[in-house]
Structures are given as structure tokens and as C-alpha cells.
Design a protein around this nucleic acid. Sequence first.
DNA 1: TGCCGTCAATAAACCGTTTTAAAACTGGAA
DNA 2: TTCCAGTTTTAAAACGGTTTATTGACGGCA
Lengths: 336, 336
Amino acid sequence: MPPTIKDIAKQSGVSISTVSRVFNNQDLVKNETKQKVLEVIEALGYTPNFVAKRLRSCKISTIGIVVPDISAAFYAEIIKGVENKANDIDCGLIVCDAHNSRDKEKEYVRYLYDGRVDGMIFVVPQLRDDDLRKIAADGLAIAVFGKDMSGFNIQSISVDNYSGAYQAVKHLYFHGHKRIAYIGGIEAENDYDHRARLAGYRQALIDNGLGVNDAYIENGAYCEEGGGSAFLRLIKLNEPPDAIFCANDEMALGVIRMARKNHIEIPEQLGLIGFDNIRVGQYISPSLTTVNQPTYTIGVLLGERLIFQMTNKEYGQKTLNLILKPELVIRESCGC
Amino acid sequence: MPPTIKDIAKQSGVSISTVSRVFNNQDLVKNETKQKVLEVIEALGYTPNFVAKRLRSCKISTIGIVVPDISAAFYAEIIKGVENKANDIDCGLIVCDAHNSRDKEKEYVRYLYDGRVDGMIFVVPQLRDDDLRKIAADGLAIAVFGKDMSGFNIQSISVDNYSGAYQAVKHLYFHGHKRIAYIGGIEAENDYDHRARLAGYRQALIDNGLGVNDAYIENGAYCEEGGGSAFLRLIKLNEPPDAIFCANDEMALGVIRMARKNHIEIPEQLGLIGFDNIRVGQYISPSLTTVNQPTYTIGVLLGERLIFQMTNKEYGQKTLNLILKPELVIRESCGC
DNA sequence: TGCCGTCAATAAACCGTTTTAAAACTGGAA
DNA sequence: TTCCAGTTTTAAAACGGTTTATTGACGGCA
């Protein structure tokens, strides 16, 4: 057992309060006594027990972050951004991988909720707004990426998915594509990304005088395989699309793979744009035009917001929901 | 403030000891009472404060893992493996990103060391063996990936880098390559991977009657750009190599990029094999032959070892250093 | 009826620190 | 000598749990 403050007190013939003082408000203790105590501390190799310290003083200098999937570079980049800010204030970071599951996410919240952290960041939370609000109400600082929580007085950051999709589709249109399809997710209660991207897609078609054809709207389940099958369904249509906008890059990879298999040339016969700017997109052939989200910046901003929240307990000083504009990264797959 | 055990006690009309019992030795409390308490716990969303818990009982069901770079898929996979095992025993996981820096790693160790975790996993630690030993000596369970710590009575898992390199080079040789170069890291004190892979490369050449040509051994700093420049140096030689084995895939990507720029065809003019099996390797053209390490399995094993260590305090029951065999994944770039 | 054993629940001690309130010790002024 | 202010020091109360010892209630048995 390591020595405790009691051992030091006994050994040096003073009370434990005095020993504690020597460590903290050192000016309140006589120099002579201080020397004596310091000697004993040195001799016994004492360090204050962190756990006991925390129990009393309630600050733990740790923040937690919950992401849907730690192995996706997108989230890893955000984490790095957050960490950068956390380091500024000597704060540790606990990373939790929710495995894309709401239950797991809930579990982790429960886990972090036990006084392990001073604040939490949720990246694209699947949790209900209510759950998030409850956490915030308990006095824990929180910041959210991926949905607008300003209605609940919670700091949040989003990317303008609508605008990203709109830009992509407009780009395809301006370069001669007229039958533009969309591959996305399903109309789930909490799939804000899908909804906004679909809406952007729709509006871009409408604004450019192209009708919205429901047969051109497909579900690719956000994964490579799903994107591939959605593509196969699309090319079987009487009037197959001449371009596809995918709500993420994974699905676009599936499209590229299946197009190759079916001898459809990209971009000559089919324009393609993805979303997220994952690393593979630069290396695959044809390289993938995509919509880039400033992940690292997002992380930094999340960190900033959270720290702001942790230090100033009241809200409202900063805009509650900050919306970042994504940008189109033009490569080969769109043919422009 | 989140609710405490006192709130639960008051709300449900029992003593705090009873509430505590409901959480721990549940058999000692009447079923009826238990139900009542559980309801209140649920309603108030109570979680026992981990700091308080730890202070009294010395167990907090948390393990920490330190990796060099969270955004590398390689480590993310290992983390997932560990997490899987941790979940089996209802253990939380704290992930720390050391940013490839020894200082940062040290900082995190100090941080975790504060009684925040019951055990730690180090993935390719840059820490000195001594530091690791000291942690273990203090009674904290630890498990290490990437270097053999059995000499210190610490559980460790490694991949047989020597064998991986040997297989790769042998494969190149058997398919007709005679001038095989190596691009790796620098001869750093703690770069065990580099040393073992280089040794495997050397031995494979010797065993097959090819001499070792020091001009063929290059440093690519483990990154894409470094791999590219190393490649450029190699092709300027009087007798440039007809194949390259890279100590990781990143460097191989650099080779592919630069080869393309210099109109050197892979695999026709140059055979290429990487190491690590990163995702991009499947998608790039030509797709990359590489040496695969069973990352997820590594994670699971690390988790197992650590948990074993946490529960049985004595050593020695299991092999202390487990060596896994990596396997060659043959794709286009080696031309076979 | 009185005694005993069993089962449930509680009170109280404890973990190692910080912090607040109180006590003890100084020295100087009345 | 007494009192007071200022400086040091101490005792004791937190912090939020777990755990040990104790109490209380109840039924069975002599």
C-alpha cells in the first residue's frame, strides 16, 4: 500500500490538514513546518491519491466523446480535433465506440455518466433529443455534432448537408447530366443526414427544371454492398440514370465496383459523386468526386464549444448551433 | 448534479445500504424491496459515482488502451477486438491516442495511472521496457502488443514480422524477381518492426542465393511521401531493382504513385509488396499485394490476456509472449 | 410465555482527501 | 495582567459510495 496523508501526518507530527495545506495553499503554513513535512513526504515517496482528491473536489479534467464507429476515418479525424482542444486545458479524453447502435450508445452514456467526465461530446448521436436534454439538465456540459440542438439550449455543430447535396447535383446538371439518381439511406426517424441530403437533391433537380422521379431514389444502406445493389436496380430501369449522387462514399465505392463488373464506364457513361471524402476515394480509379466535410475543424469546434460550456455554466453567449458549409471536391468520377 | 445514492434511498424509503445492496450482493435484499428501489433508480437515471466507488472498493471495471494513432485503421481494429472482450466482463474501455509520440504516451500513462483503470493495454508502446515494468510492478495489470515483454513477466503479443517479410520476399523471388529492394524505416532504438522485417528480408535473400545489396535498402519513413522518394532514389541506381518490398502499405502507395508518374508499369516492370493490409490497398490500381496482420484477433487476444491478468494476479499460467503468424494477401501488384 | 435462529434492513465505520469552523498560540497594546 | 488581532494548527464535516456490525421482526419450539 502506498503511504497516505495520514502516514505523513503521523510521521511528521502534525495534523492531516496541515499536510494537505503543504500541498495546496502553501502560504498558510509556517515555513519551518512546511520544511519538516516536505522532508517526510520526500522520504516516504508520497503522492496524493487522485481518487480521493476527485471525490472531494468534483473536477476530473476529463471529457468523453461518443462516436458511431471509431474505425471510420471521418470520426477519427473529429476525435483528433477534439483532443487538440482538450490538451489546451490539460484535459484527458475518453473515446467510446458506439458501434452504430443506439443501445450501445446509451450504455456508454450511462457509463460516462458516473462522474468519470466533466463533459461529453456526441458525434451523430442516435439518442433521442430527450435523453440528451436530460444529461445537459444534470449540469454536465455537452456538445453535439450532427443535429441542431439549439432548441434544447445545447451547443451543437452541423454540416449543411442540404447544401452539400445541392451543390453536387447542380454540378452534375451543369455538366450535362439530366437523369440524376440518388442513393441514400432509409427514411428513419433520426437519420437527419439522409433527410437533408435527399432534400438538397430534390431541390436542385426542381430548381433546374428537372422533375423528381421517385424511381431514381434508392436505398443503399450506407455501405458498399448496399450501394452496389442499389446501382444494379437503377440500371435495370427502362430509362436508367446518366448520373448518380450517393449520400456517402461507401455506397459510391459499391457503384464503381458494380459498374466495372457490368462494363459501364465512369464517368463516360455515368457521372458519380459521393459524400464524405473518405481516403479511398483519392486512390480508386476513377477517383471519386465527393463532398468534403471539414472533419478536423469540426472536432476543434466541438472541443471549443464544450470547454466553453464547462467553464461558463450559462448558455447563450455563443451561437448555439453552428452550421458549416461542406465543399465539393472535384475528381474524375463526375467527368468534369 | 446527477442523483446520488442518498436521493435514491430517500425517494424509495430505504437506507442507502439497501440501495447499495441492490447494486451489489443482490441476494441479501427482499425481492419486493429490490423492485421498488430499481424503479426509483430507473426513474432518476442513477449511476453509482465511479470515484466514490473506487475509493472504497479498489475495482472500477475499466481498462485503458494506448495506441499510437487512432485514425489508422490498423489500431482501430485492434481496439474493436479489445472492446469485444472487455464487454464480456462489463468493463469500460478508455482509448488514448498517443500521436506517435513517446511524451504523449507517457502523459497518458500518468493520466491513467491515477486509479482510473484496472488494467492497461499498450499497442506498440514507445515507452522504455523499464517504464512498463514499473507499471506492472505496481500491481496494475498490463498487456502489450508489438514487443516481447516476457522477460519482464508481462503478457505480450507480437506478430512475426520476420516471417511476414520473409514470405513476401520469397514470394517475389519465386516469381522471377532477382533484384529485390526494401523500403523501411530507420534503425531506431525502439523500432522493433523495422528491425525484424529487415532481418526477414535479408534472410530470404540469402536463403535463395541472392546477395544483400545495401544500395537496395532504403528509408521511407513509413509514409506515402517517404515511400515515393525512396522509390525515386532506387530507380536512379545503375541497376535498379525489379521488385520492392515495403515495410508498410503507406510507403507502397507512394511507390505506386511515383511509378505511375515515371511510366513504370506495376507489376510488369516492377513487383511490389506491402505490409499491413490497409483498406486502400484493395481499391488502388494495381491492387496491392501485402502482408496481413490479424488485427481484430490481436485485439481479442490482448483483451483476454489482460483480463486474465486482472483476475488471476499471479503470472505464468499462460505463455507470456504469443507470436502470431501474418499471412501474405496476394493481389495484382506482385504480378503473380 | 420465553428463548432462539433467520431473514431484512439499518446504522455506522471507512476509503483518502479538501475545506470550514474552531482552537491554540503568538506578540503587542492597554 | 488582560485582552485582542493575527497567525498557525487542528478537529471535524464533507464527498458518495461499500461493508461490517447491529438491530428489529417474525416464526418455531420447548
